[in-house]
Design a protein around this nucleic acid. Sequence first.
DNA 1: CTAGGAGCTCGAGTCGGCTCTAGGTCAAGC
DNA 2: GCTTGACCTAGAGCCGACTCGAGCTCCTAG
Lengths: 144, 144
Amino acid sequence: MSDIAPHLTIGQVAERTGLSVHALRFYEQEGILANPVRRDVGGRRLYTEQDVEWLNLCVILRASGMPVPEIRRYTDLARRGDGTEDERLALLREHQQRVIGQIDQLTRSLDLINFKIGVYEDRLDPAPGEMCGIARIGDAAVTS
Amino acid sequence: MSDIAPHLTIGQVAERTGLSVHALRFYEQEGILANPVRRDVGGRRLYTEQDVEWLNLCVILRASGMPVPEIRRYTDLARRGDGTEDERLALLREHQQRVIGQIDQLTRSLDLINFKIGVYEDRLDPAPGEMCGIARIGDAAVTS
DNA sequence: CTAGGAGCTCGAGTCGGCTCTAGGTCAAGC
DNA sequence: GCTTGACCTAGAGCCGACTCGAGCTCCTAG
């Protein structure tokens, strides 16, 4: 935990985060790194383990649909440090709601998909004792 | 259920489906309508209730991330009718898996977000009897 | 008779988030 | 000495799914 900081190359970080080297440079340019990346004598980026940790968090945020500008905002707040906790919390809560909403929407979509799959399964291979005409679920779009 | 078919205009369909008129024309052009839209004497589109039902299904599929080309494929199969049920079923099952995957991914993201929110809440307003240093969850990205 | 509103077509523009290209530096290995 | 491979910058390109605009035709109400 001392300052040995093993200097990861961009390629290694790409491997560890699942991001492409292109994406890593893009993210840096978009201001999505808590502290500025250092460079070696040849101008090559040197990442730290902290950077990787941070990027992995960002990957999660992106994967759950947080737009890049908002991640930048979050990063800014984190960089500024003390006194920004309430804003960071607010931002996370907002995102939390978005994610919950997405899950909700997907779950409802999945219900319909499951239902339609059921219809096709029955149509292709009707279970014994089951009638052909399947009750419609309200007015839901159950066409074809 | 007879062939009265009350001829909906594109504007009415837009209202009923939540799609824009632009999107409706775009979808038609993309082949995402089970049967070709009829036109009135002036060349205006006339939709049926079936079209609306179908479109509402498509809206759900889109909302759950099915790409337009795949909806077109599904529409083609539906249009062809009998004998394509197994393909339609396969297509739906594939999508079902995708949606489940998405929900899964979002749920896991949400876990981390919830965790971080908890960290900030404690940091801003520590509950009595709670210590400051919060145990890290494995090596998970819990930075800042 | 004319103004407004809804519709039409065709094609261009937009947006987000990368991804790729061109043209170059540098260090290691043969 | 030369090739190879990883890295660099700046900027262009791409993809999907719409969205928008220009310029037109209708119909209807005042």
